[in-house]
Amino acid sequence: MSEFLQSLIRGLGSGSIYALLALGFVIIYKSTRVISFAQPAFMLAGAVLVSYLAAEVGFFVAVPVAAVLIAALALGVERTVLRPMIGKPVFVVAIITIGVDVVVRVVTNAFIGLDVRQVGDPWGLSTVSLLGVDVQQRYLVMLGTTVVVVAVLFAFFRFSRIGLAMRAVAYDQEVALAQGISVGSVFALSWAIAGGLAALAGVFVATGAGVDQQLWVIALKALPAIILGGLDSLGGAVVGGLAVGVVESLVGTYQGDVAPWLGPNFALVAPYVLMLIVLLVRPYGLFGSKEVERL
């Protein structure tokens, strides 16, 4: 039982990383109708930035500063690269974000070098006893922070004027424009929010293990999460992210005993299998809205 609980909490912890990333994807998708494949690069850049800043100003100052800086970077990318592409086919824009991702990642890699960099987090791999189960502190921190961030985000979308504007743009861009909402700034803001969330996620990934050049691969796990939850559902992104984390962790714990023929490391691809199964039943994910078509 304690093995199960440990695995569950580990899954929820890493799942909250995926949830943060997935939220970024979904926020950008909702406002601009484009999937930004640049999220992995922003995540990596955030973690690297913290690893430099933490030595100067301490971890807890470094994280928000880095999140803001990466948000500014994402905003700049949107303004210079993506804004001229408005109106182009979504697939073309998505491919362009892959290009952005590669460029940002290569530049960031130059700051990592070949060694593993530490982000200077105070938790490391130390554990705490919770209801008689030893769990790593960092997973609890991840889960807690994510709950707070998600709550703030939902409140922002629900209660603030800008949040309302963003929801209006997500609903119908032309109508929003006619109401006097600056659709362009909503695009920029959604990129900035996504960038900040990615930076935060990057720091969490780097706690315990450190930053290396392969860190960005983690961000791709958010893709099954958003498909699982539905591309245009914020709640779906959170649920999808947590589900992916838990499935990955549980499969990692038990698959070796139950189905060893699937090979070691099957846990890493288990989210994709989950995604395929869900899509067979629900082509628009669990909470995604079905596309209404007319000629």
């Binding site: 999937i35 893709l223 498909i227 591309l231 890493l268 994709y272």
Partner: peptide, 20 residues
């Protein structure tokens, strides 16, 4: 059954499954 970006990501998933 899928269109656009859903399809792109599912086919991306195939690559990861294949790699495994």
């Amino acid at each position: 059954r899928l269109r656009g970006l859903y399809l792109a990501i599912v086919t991306l998933g195939l690559v990861f499954l294949g790699e495994h």
